[in-house]
Each structure stands twice: as structure tokens, then as C-alpha cells.
Design a protein around this nucleic acid. Sequence first.
DNA 1: GTACTTTCTGGAATCAGTCAAGAAACGGGG
DNA 2: CCCCGTTTCTTGACTGATTCCAGAAAGTAC
Lengths: 148, 148
Amino acid sequence: MLRGATLRVTRPRLSVLSTVHAQPHLDTDSIIGLVRADLGDVSHQAVYDVLRALTTAGLVRRIQPTGSPARYESRVGDNHHHVVCRSCGAIADIDCAVGEAPCLTASDDHGFTIDEAEVIYWGVCPDCSTATHIDTAHTDPPRKDSRV
Amino acid sequence: MLRGATLRVTRPRLSVLSTVHAQPHLDTDSIIGLVRADLGDVSHQAVYDVLRALTTAGLVRRIQPTGSPARYESRVGDNHHHVVCRSCGAIADIDCAVGEAPCLTASDDHGFTIDEAEVIYWGVCPDCSTATHIDTAHTDPPRKDSRV
DNA sequence: GTACTTTCTGGAATCAGTCAAGAAACGGGG
DNA sequence: CCCCGTTTCTTGACTGATTCCAGAAAGTAC
């Protein structure tokens, strides 16, 4: 898989790749933690480098909802989007109803050559929704501190 | 306008508000610069505070494409989205073709209560498109360093 | 196995934004 | 028009996420 992308096969890369495959939507810190649990000492720099290399090679996808650190997932190539919980930051995948390339038909593209439409749905996940059932409205949403 | 939102009228607020109205999609740094040019010394902290206050009050909207610092615009209330140039970071407004609430019909919402769909189109702006006309394909896109 | 290149280590540095304490400014009541 | 209480601004330190750098180590091709 790495070789297919003309990338050298190293322990950190293998570990990061399998971590991202095992759990989608992990943030960088969590990935560093899991990789270290797997391999022992690995510099954070190495993980950042690996994630960038994998992202560039198209083996993983990087997502970064506003107010959240970068997250990575292994579902690539298909056109799917994400729902983000305003309360706890949980992320889930969404296949857009519109089909292959949703919303790519902008009404007026201002001359831009558009190649991708990125959609982020904002809402509240089932867990948080039931947790704050008594007072659904006035809990000022953290929007940060996300940690899946 | 500020009074309407139960906000005290101060010089920094007036300046920030008119700056954001004058030029949409400015990043925080640029706003600080323009406000200082207008008023003299103003602390960056004040601008951050003002921007947050205005955002919370719904007088301005905050947008933050991946890899770019926060930007602000005065078009609020309507449902519009943005195109971002991969090359120079320029941003333009887009009224989604689907109508009022585009793409809000996710195929499977995983139990989330969705209240907003945020769409960001990625592409290349007319300027960059003509500038790199000779070699349209292999200019590795900076994706950062955006500065409108 | 050896040489060359890419990648990883360790540490410092940057960038965007937040926190905290005290000073200054706003605006309602006298 | 001035005073007072609250909100907002100033100053300056600080955090979190990410990047930059130089040298050491590990992959790969021959």
C-alpha cells in the first residue's frame, strides 16, 4: 500500500496508517499517543511528517472542522462528508443525498474553477442530545475541547 | 446597529464593524492593521474581543477554511457559502443553487440533529488560473499562506 | 554490503488565539 | 452635567497546534 504510493516503508508509517484505518476521525494528538503505545518512542514530528506524506499521497484524508485540531480518516476517493457535534465534537460520516458530486453546481462561480465541494453539517449527536434533554436550548455550546 | 444588539458603542467596535463591512473575508491580522490605521493604537486583544462579541451577536459571520486563520464578513442571515482559491486563498461568496437550505437532507444523519450545513468550494480563482496558464497542472498548491 | 537518499530525532521557534489583572470608557440615574 | 457600576480595553504572559532546522538513523538501489 505504501509502496504503491512510492513511499518508503517505515515502522512509524505502518503504525500511523493502521491506526487511522482502525479508528476514523482521530486528532493528531490521539494518533501520536496510539502510535507510541504501539512502537514506543516516536517523535511527534515524525507523526506530523507521516500524516502529511500520507495525505499528499492520497492514502488518508485530512479534515479540520472550525475550532478543532486536524483529524484524519482512511475513507478516501469516495465523495462523503461529515456531521460534527457542536457539543462534544464527535464526527460521523455522511453520504450526501445529492449523489456523486453534491452541490458542485454553484449558482455563480465568480469565474473560479471549482474542483471540490466540502460539506460540514453542524448539529448535536445522539448522546449529547439525550444528555442535555432537560434543557436543550440554553447550554452554551463549547464548540472547542473536542475529543472523540 | 450596535445598540440594537445591546452592545456598548465604542471606538474599536465601530471601527471593526465598518472595516468588516467595507471588505469582506478579511483575516484577523488584516482587520487589526486596518483598525489601527483608523484609530491609532488598539490592542489585538480588543479586536479579538470585539470580533467575538459581534459574531456572538450575529452582526458578523466568522469563516475559517482549513489552513487559513479566521476571517469575517458582514453578510449574515442569508444562507450563502464560499469558494476558496487553493492557490492564493482568495474567497468569494456563493449562493447555493439548491435554495434556502442546501444539502440539509443528508442521506443518513446517524441520529444527529442537524441545524446547519456549511459548504466550502475549493478551486482556483480567475487570477491564479490565468497566471499559471502555461502549466495548469503541476504547480504544487500552497494551500496555506492565504492572504487576500 | 555500500552508498545515497529519505525519514526520524530532538529541540527550538512560529502562529493564532486565549487568559488574567488592572485601567479606562460607556451610559443610566440623580 | 457629573457620578457610579459595569463593560470593555490595555498590557503582557501563556497555551496548543504546527512547523523549521540540523544532525543521526534507517530504507533502497546497485
